[in-house]
Design a protein around this nucleic acid. Structure first.
Lengths: 149, 149
DNA sequence: TTGACTGCAAAACCTTTGCAAATGG
DNA sequence: CCATTTGCAAAGGTTTTGCAGTCAA
């Protein structure tokens, strides 16, 4: 699974398997679907390794991004969140997409390949070679929709 | 056009038509399709009104966002850019989307309604009420694609 | 006239960096 | 051992805010 894969990748690059790095990845793994900010991640990791510094969390997040083990989501308001990468996304080479509730702020993921046609079309009409896409849908989740009825 | 509409909207709200506000909107209008950062916007406005302060640019951008006269684009790397809103987008209630070149950084807009079906589908399967969507396509523009052949 | 607006500087954020101490292999 | 990593604190970069003076209406 992810954990071992991570350690192996680190060793291959001559990097070290530290308790801090393992803790950060583990928190992200245990919080699948949560889409954490750096600050939230820091707080959760501190519960596990109380002495970790914020700078280490930032450095580890950067490392995990470089290793494609996590994804970054930037919201419309500029806030940035992270989530553990899914195996299937890594294999397909595509990211999944997000539904963002404008009321409660909840973020849920969904898979979609409806944009394949669009990408072909764009290549033909504009010459733009698309290699990745990101879709964000803003609206109201079921719970918030119902709350306001 | 936009300029008069802007002044009228300001007056309606009891806000004032200042030379700084007009200058900021005008620069955005004159740079359609450019997708400016706050800093770029500040530099361009200074050429027109040399005494404007950076804080005023920030405050005016916020005002224009609230009035829906401009759109904000947040890129994957977290950088934020602004562009003047198009009439047709305001009428349709949908934003347009962007092609972002990973090589030269150029951003071009495109219109698309291919996601209507997807939105219906999501509502039926998840109960999530979609009210807006944002699509970013990352890749290589024609010029950059050809450069590397 | 008078409340809204502005420029400036300070403050508030968030993220990165330099460095001496700690630690993994 | 020794290169990498860490925590801390300082520095950087960006955005916001407080305030006294300025300006539109």
């Amino acid at each position: 699974m992810n954990q071992e894969n991570f350690k192996d990748q680190l060793k291959e690059k001559g990097l070290k398997v530290t308790s801090q790095r393992v803790a950060v990845l583990e928190v992200l793994d245990l919080n699948r679907g949560k889409h954490l900010t750096t600050e939230e991640l820091y707080e959760l990791v501190k519960a596990m390794s109380p002495d970790i510094g914020l700078a280490t969390v930032y450095r580890t997040v950067q490392l995990l991004l470089d290793m494609n083990l996590i994804d970054r989501i930037t919201l419309d308001d500029g806030s940035i969140r992270y989530e553990i990468a899914e195996e299937k996304d890594k294999l397909s080479g595509h990211h999944h997409h997000h539904l963002i509730c404008l009321d409660c702020g909840d973020i849920v993921s969904f898979a979609d390949d409806l944009l394949e046609n669009l990408e072909d079309n764009i290549r033909k009409t504009t010459g733009f070679e698309v290699v990745d896409h990101e879709v964000k849908l803003y609206g109201y989740c079921r719970a918030c929709s119902e709350k306001h009825l």
